[in-house]
Amino acid sequence: MHVNLLLEEEQRSSSPVSLGLAIRLAVITVSVLLIVGAFSFYAEYRALQNQVTSTTDDWKRTEPKYKAAVQLRNELADRNVTLNEITGWRDSRIAWGKQLETLQQAVPAVIQLTELRVSQMVLSLSNNVSARVYEMRISGKTAAPRSEVNVVQFLEAFKQPPFSGVIESAVLPPGAFRQDPTAKTDRIFEIICKYVPRALE
């Protein structure tokens, strides 16, 4: 027979690890982990703060140079706009001295020019860029025999180099080839040459 004379409050666990010890250990472990975590977080936080300070200082040193570089780039853009404008002017024109000399060489001996008119217009191209467009109207006469051949031969000259690079079209408008009212043995004609648009940039 086994008689238990211990009160309930006096009863102790037979386990070598008591509940109190387990709780103490858990509290200590959690506290240590929290302290280590907090310290590592703090260290990381401080490092980050230092990094931000150092980067900000770096930016403060770099910013004036950067702003100067950006200003320089903007100034260059402005200068290039001006330069493009004036070089566009130069490049869009036609050297008419050379053009007329070439024309003289291209006129067949049997054709006599009576009038030449050149006019310039400024058009806006599809890309919103303006362009000079020249038109040349040439009037002339030629002797009636083979007059048609002579004029067609002259017209063809505008479709060959050196004109083909600058002239877009050369046409004899309807009714422009006819009998000369002042000399019945001659034929008069008019040729209209439209030049390739020359962009102003």
Binding site: W96, L100, L113, T114, E115, L116, V118, S119, R132
Partner: peptide, 9 residues
């Protein structure tokens, strides 16, 4: 730049 020419005989 030449932008208009008129030559007549």
């Amino acid at each position: 730049c030449v932008n208009e020419i008129g030559i007549s005989s």
